[in-house]
Nucleic acid binder design. Structure first.
Lengths: 230, 230
DNA sequence: AGGGCTTAGTGCATTAATTCACAAAGTCAG
DNA sequence: CTGACTTTGTGAATTAATGCACTAAGCCCT
C-alpha cells in the first residue's frame, strides 16, 4: 500500500525506451563502450534533456562528466521492459500479413518467437509456412497452454478481428497486437496495441496535402545530424 | 501572413481522425444516417468530449440535440485528411514484409495503390508479386516520375534503410512510412512515420511484466461497451 | 592539489493534450 | 407555443509531456 510497488514511468517514455535499446545494441555491436545523452539524442532524433529524463526513470546509472555505459544501460532497459526473458507469440490470421509476420525475423531476434499461427479457414489450416503449420483457431486455448503463449497478434480481416480477440482473451492472453482496422472491445486488464497501416498512410496524406496547399518549401537541411559516437 | 492559412489541428487529433473515418464508413455501410459524439466515442474507445473537440477542428458540422450526419462527416474528414484523391505508393524492399504489403488490399482500398516495388538484390529484381514486377532501386527516380508516386514505404533491412530513404528523397518523395528498425535521418521537410513491429511487442512486454510483478488481477469487465448505434 | 571542462540529474516553466462542465441551440410532444 | 429533453461546441481546469537551465559530480591536465 504505502510501499512503492514500482516506479511509474510515463507512457511516452516507455514507448521511447525500445528505440534507445535498438540504438544501444547497434553501438555495442560496433564496440562502442560509452555514450552521452547528447549522442544518443542525436541518434534517436530527440533532445538530450528528454534522453536524460527518460533514462533517469530507470535509476541513476550515468556518470557525470562521462556519460553512460552501453552494456549496463542495455541491461537496465531490458530489465525494465521485461526483456530478460522471451515472450511467445501466436499469430491469428494466416493471410499475407500473418504469414509474413510469422516468418519475420525481427520478432524472434528481439525475443518474441512466433510459436504458432492459426486461422479459421479450413483451406488454410494445415498449410506450412516457415516451419509452422497453420492451426485451427478453435484450438487456440490448447496452443496457448501447450506453447506457453504470452502475446497474441491479430492479422485477420476486420470482420473476424473481434472474435479473434475474444478467443485470445478466453485462452488467457492479456497482451494483444492488433493489425486489423477495427477498435477492439476488451477488458481493461488486457493491453492492446493497435497498428493500422492504412491509418499511417492517411496521417502522411494529411501532412502531404498540407505541404501542397501551403506551397512546397524545399528545405533540404538535415533534421538529424548523424553525429559520430565516440 | 496575418491571413489564417489553414486551421491548425493538433497532431493527436489528426491521428484519431482516420479511426473515426473507419468507424463512420462501417456505419454508412450498415445504413446508419446519424450518430452522436457519445456513440462514436464508445465505438472508438475514447471519451465523448474528445470526439466533439476533434470534430470541431473540422468546423461546426453537428446539430445540437441531434448529432452528426454520417455521410457529411465522412466527407469532411476525408477532405481534411487529403483523401479526396489517391496517393500512389512505392515499396522499397521486396522481402517478406514488402511483398506482403504490396499485396495488402488495405492500402488500395483506402486510396493508396501500390504502383511499384523495388529492391537492390539482383536475385529479387524481375520477380513478379501480385501484378507488380520488382524493379531496381536504382530506377527509383524514373519510377517515381512515371508512376507519379507520392509516398515511399521502406521495408528493407535496417542496414539498407537509410540509403533507401536517401534514394526516395533524392527522387522527390516527401512522405515516408518506415518499417525498418532504425531512426532515419531526413530533412525536416519530409514527413516520416516509423512503425517498428518489434517495438510494439516490447511495449506490450513492459505492461505484461508489470501485470505479473504487481499480481494479476483478473478484471474481465469490458472497457469498451459495444453500444448499438441508432 | 586544484582549476577547467564535461555531462548527468532535476526543479521549474512551458506547451500540448485531455477532460470537465455548462451555456447555446436545436428537437419533439402535447 | 411552450417546456422538457438532448446534444453540440467550447471556455476553463487539469493532467501529461516537453524542454530549459542550472547544480552537482566526476574526469583530466598541469
Amino acid at each position: 500500500m504505502t510501499q512503492l510497488q514500482r516506479r511509474k514511468i510515463p507512457d511516452a517514455a516507455i514507448a521511447r525506451l525500445p528505440i534507445y535499446l535498438q540504438i544501444l545494441n547497434n553501438l555495442a555491436a560496433t564496440n562502442v563502450l560509452q555514450f552521452s545523452s547528447d549522442e544518443l539524442a542525436a541518434l534517436a532524433g530527440v533532445n538530450a534533456a528528454k534522453v536524460r529524463k527518460d533514462l533517469s526513470y530507470l535509476g541513476s546509472y550515468g556518470t557525470r562528466g562521462v556519460g553512460y555505459e552501453v552494456t549496463y544501460l542495455i541491461y537496465q532497459i531490458k530489465r525494465e521492459l521485461g526483456l530478460m526473458r522471451e515472450w511467445n507469440v501466436v499469430v491469428v490470421g494466416a493471410g499475407n500479413l500473418g504469414c509474413a509476420l510469422a516468418k519475420f525475423d525481427g520478432f524472434l531476434s528481439r525475443g518474441f518467437p512466433v510459436v504458432g499461427i492459426v486461422d479459421n479457414d479450413p483451406k488454410k489450416i494445415g498449410r506450412t509456412t516457415s516451419s509452422l503449420t497453420v492451426g485451427d483457431v478453435a484450438d487456440l486455448k490448447n496452443i496457448v497452454r501447450d506453447e506457453k503463449v504470452n502475446i497474441g497478434v491479430i492479422t485477420t480481416s476486420s470482420a473476424a478481428a473481434q472474435s479473434a480477440a475474444d478467443a485470445l482473451i478466453e485462452a488467457g492472453i492479456t497482451s494483444i497486437l492488433n493489425f486489423a482496422p477495427v477498435v477492439l472491445s476488451t477488458p481493461s486488464s488486457v493491453s492492446v496495441r493497435h497498428v493500422d497501416l492504412g491509418v499511417e498512410l492517411q496521417i502522411l496524406s494529411y501532412y502531404e496535402q498540407m505541404r501542397i496547399e501551403t506551397g512546397i518549401k524545399s528545405d533540404t537541411s538535415p533534421e538529424l545530424s548523424k553525429v559520430g559516437v565516440q
